[in-house]
Design a protein around this nucleic acid. Structure first.
Lengths: 264, 264
DNA sequence: GGCGTAATTATCACTATGTGAGAAAATTCA
DNA sequence: TGAATTTTCTCACATAGTGATAATTACGCC
């Protein structure tokens, strides 16, 4: 959490962008006044910030004193999706993988982002209630669940050190402690299994089967995981699903290579 | 396109946010150098802008010289979805509406935004290829298609004037010209029909059946529309679908009223 | 439909901070 | 390891962001 490098005052644009992070699911509506006191700027400045963000569409004025995140974000996310080669490749693979299953399940594509794992895409075969609450943009716990663990296992050492520094508590609570050496040993162990299977670590009764996805330089790009509503019948079933997930991940990686060649 | 009010120099944050609008589906990757020349700032400043945006997660550095829109956008869009009461109410209604159909179709929820209509949500019964290319965040033509027309019909006069000023060409091309009076007459006509049915105006062979959704102050909030891959068999079928769309829109509006009461 | 109150914008003096040009450092690739 | 490029740093300067307050506008209420 502490700044690694030399200190530098936050620029004006930093503060304007900082306004956006005030908005959350719990508090989706903000007034300039409340934002001003929260950010330690004058009311006039808060209005200036809000106006800047409204002008760019990042905020929307509902009515007097009530602002919410704006439609430019929706527009931008579409561009993010369009520009994401892994998503484009993964989506049909995820659909196919899901279609082979008869039990209620979800397939998740996730990525590492800011000491968290974020869901990029979800495919589910339950039309009504989703099997997993992890829809696009949702953060997943970093140290629990197959989805995160397979990513964690392959993060660069530098990142692992940072995580240990900032989240020692959570790591120990997840049974990967108590020391840094223990943590590293746990990651090493995870690294040796191509697929991780975890049960009831994120949601009670759910089983996650996940494997890492690598980019062409061998760095971990994210993970592909299958979330099962109820535990598989037997070891045989687990083995079958494990193979399917692994095969799908390889297919995505292979496609990625082809896409890179095309682009290059 | 011309600024309505008094001129004011763009603030620094404006320019930083302006960087984001450089990114498009056609050009999803930008370098500080290219951005600098495009925005008429020095290279050093472009680097400062990019660093600010990367720090907030709005941009992501792929590798040397290559930046793309970042994961913070994905995170923010999830918050937008979570905070959107209309979306939350509409989604189940859209699913139900779709389930009643046997023919390939899509249900669209759209909104007015910056002289365009933007798709907020799409439900489709074709798992593979989507029936409509209008996914969340996609802009729709403002003057063609049932989806846009029913919104256009109910926009406030002030907005209608702006649209005429900025898009006279498109309006005339869409057959709502040649004068402003003709345009207003066309809108009046649209306003008198509760549901609009248009064929092949956006995509050849497709039929759109749309109706406006209003908020509790009577302002148009957006539209609900059904897009059919192939034209309906007969007038009777059209009438049936028309009723269904209208009923769904009313249901969303009713729910919205309830939600407002709950929130208030 | 006008009035009163609260929200929003404009004004202004002041200083902070964003800016460009170039040098220095760091990173990448052969 | 070395050359070429990218990226950061330094610094002087002037712009532009800031807070306090006043003026204006918009909304709700009777």
């Amino acid at each position: 959490m502490k700044d690694g490098g030399k200190k530098r005052g936050p620029t004006s644009a930093d503060k304007v962008l900082g306004v956006l992070s005030l908005f959350s699911a719990e508090r989706p509506v903000w007034s300039p006044e409340r934002a001003a006191s929260r950010m330690d700027v004058s009311l006039a400045t808060a209005y200036r910030y809000f106006n800047t963000l409204v002008a760019s569409g990042m905020l929307e004025r509902l009515n007097r004193n009530r602002y919410v995140l704006g439609p430019a974000i929706v527009e931008l996310d579409r561009k993010v999706r369009a520009a994401d080669p892994v998503l484009k490749l993964a989506q049909p693979v995820m659909e196919r993988l899901l279609r082979r299953l008869r039990e209620p399940a979800a397939i998740l594509l996730c990525r590492y982002y800011r000491q968290k794992v974020m869901c990029i895409h979800q495919e589910t075969n339950r039309s009504g209630e989703p099997v997993s609450s992890y829809e696009r943009g949702a953060p997943m716990p970093m140290f629990r669940g197959a989805t995160s663990k397979v990513i964690l296992a392959h993060l660069p050492p530098r990142t692992v050190v940072d995580l240990w520094r900032d989240h020692r508590r959570d790591i120990v609570a997840a049974g990967m402690g108590p020391g840094f050496e223990d943590f590293k040993a746990a990651l090493r162990a995870l690294r040796h299994e191509p697929v991780n299977v975890s049960s009831s670590e994120v949601d009670a009764g759910r089983t996650g089967i996940a494997t890492a996805i690598f980019d062409d330089s061998g760095r971990v790009n994210g993970s592909l995981s299958m979330v099962l509503l109820s535990p598989p019948a037997n070891k045989r079933a687990v083995a079958r699903l494990t193979m399917a997930v692994q095969a799908a991940a390889r297919e995505i990686e292979r496609g990625r290579g082809v896409a890179a060649m095309k682009a290059g």
